[in-house]
Design a protein around this nucleic acid. Structure first.
Lengths: 308, 308
DNA sequence: TCGTGTCCATAGCCGCTGTCTATGGCGGCC
DNA sequence: GGCCGCCATAGACAGCGGCTATGGACACGA
């Protein structure tokens, strides 16, 4: 059974005439006869009763006709669906991002993308950089917002740097203000609120403290971004978060810049190198790049590759 | 797009592995890869993201998968439906019959057939012999119960004689009884009830009267079988009907045999010679032949080919 | 009754395509 | 670093679907 045979069958059923049906499907009459014959042979039953001048469906033909129409319609639907995917009227992007980036850049950028392509579903995968890289390589993600350097550098991934972002210290507005700008060394012995494992911010902060010669004292650790900000707000300790996140966190938080050289992270967009991302993913990539440029000019972020 | 390509696609989507999918569909791995590639090229979008050890569906692949499954299931359904037709678990027989035969032989025979093959629809086409023959030749009927000789003999039709049936005169039970047995000549000048055009009984009766040298006097003409019996019952005249019909007509009718040679008609089963009837039609044919044999022995009909 | 036309089936040929085996290329793993 | 697993590619071959030409059967009209 083949699609063409079904199409020929439907054409004959509609025209009730082999020669005219052959014209309708743009093949010669013998070709059509042969294919109808092949279909009948395969199914083991005649589909038409060939009376002179009166081609009629047999019972087998009448049973097959609605199914044939439905199969052909489904095949047509399949072609159109895939076409619409290519035209970005439908589709799906699987975007991975580290938790801290989900809070900062993404909300506005995704709103923008959704406005441009309302038919495209956005599947956000929030996870640590290590997981994101693995999922990218496995084809489980189309794009990922990651923090450089990648925990497990892979030549199979292409990264495009978006911006550099300063980290700042946050503390409760009603607690004694720390010195400003705050040096990393000033954090020694001060109660701190620390993210859970998997956050690149956790690794960055711990590494900076250890480089300064001490192990930080954490009153609470293990929270997500919102929880950490809440604990800081409650006066449980000092947190180290991206400036962009701190700016959105509200008036109950005191934001204290870090003394030079400070802490800084490079945010990049990553995708697999070996295959081109789907159309919708490329479109999202463009939107994210534009959002990053916008953020650099309006939100005081540093352009990618800028010095300390 | 081809059924095999869709089957291969579903196999890969299920196995998430090209080599194992190839084994599952019993082709070599390169053949499967090539067909998937051809499908992707035709649809204009990749269906799988080929990551080492992790074959995943793209958005286009996820859009296609449910449709592919449905198409394949429909194709399977089509094959089974046609198979069931061949096995007489479903099907359709289009049976034509002259009106007088619908009343006599058919009810019991069709009940028997329906009991044996409850899934087979019976489409009865009641009409004159001329129409029936034309519809048979056109393929609009599978079988027809006709009265011989055929009005327009056609070499394209095969007929099997079922039985010969005597005609009898019927009159109202409360009217004066005609002589018994009744000669055709006795009908001259007697009020008669005549069938409408198209009934073979009408032609038979008129021809017999004319052969006897008179034109019958009809008080009512144009009715169907039930109407004619009703008119006779009401005393409007004498009717000439098959013995089998008269026997079923109830006690309000007086049945008078016709004097020798009497009137007799040969009932036959006809079908097209050039193509074998569908399976269900052959089954009905057998049932009708058995019913005819049964009627010959139990109802006093004459076997086919019997002399006058 | 005999052409003539219409219509579907068949025959024969050809090019496309789907299948195979063999091989290449590329990561992952020991 | 060598081996293995896995998918893609190359080339050969057979099968099949397409075409033109022709056959056979019926309908119609002269």
């Amino acid at each position: 059974m083949q699609f063409q045979q079904l199409a020929y069958f439907v054409a004959v059923a509609d025209a009730r005439h082999f020669t005219r049906a052959a014209e309708a499907v743009h093949v010669s009459q013998p070709s059509l006869s042969q294919q109808i014959g092949a279909l009948e042979k395969e199914l083991g039953a005649p589909l038409f009763s060939r009376a002179r001048g009166n081609i009629a469906l047999t019972d087998a033909g009448e049973a097959l006709l609605p199914l044939a129409r439905r199969i052909l319609a489904d095949a047509d639907t399949a072609r159109h669906e895939v076409l619409e995917l290519a035209q970005l009227r439908r589709g799906r992007v699987r975007l991975g991002a580290t938790p801290s980036l989900c809070t900062g850049l993404l909300p506005d950028a995704l709103r923008d993308f959704h406005g441009r392509h309302p038919g495209v579903r956005l599947l956000l995968d929030e996870g640590g950089s290590h997981d994101l890289v693995r999922r990218l390589a496995r084809g489980a993600l189309d794009l990922a917002l990651v923090v450089l350097p990648l925990p497990s550098p892979s030549p199979a991934l292409t990264t495009v740097e978006l911006f550099q972002e300063d980290l700042v210290a946050v503390s409760a507005a009603d607690a004694p203000a720390p010195r400003s700008p705050l040096r990393i060394a000033d954090l020694e012995g001060r109660p701190m609120v620390m993210f859970r494992h998997g956050y690149d911010l956790r690794d960055l902060t711990l590494a900076a403290c250890r480089a300064a010669g001490f192990e930080p004292y954490c009153t609470v650790e293990g929270g997500e971004m919102d929880a950490v900000l809440g604990f800081v707000r409650a006066g449980l300790g000092i947190g180290v978060v991206p400036a962009m996140v701190a700016a959105r966190a509200g008036a109950e938080l005191r934001v204290t810049p870090l003394a030079r050289p400070g802490l800084r992270r490079t945010v990049a967009l990553a995708h697999r190198s070996d295959v081109a991302p789907p159309r919708a993913a490329r479109a999202l990539q463009e939107v994210l790049l534009a959002a990053a440029r916008q953020a650099v000019t309006s939100s005081g972020l540093r352009p990618p590759g800028a010095g300390p």
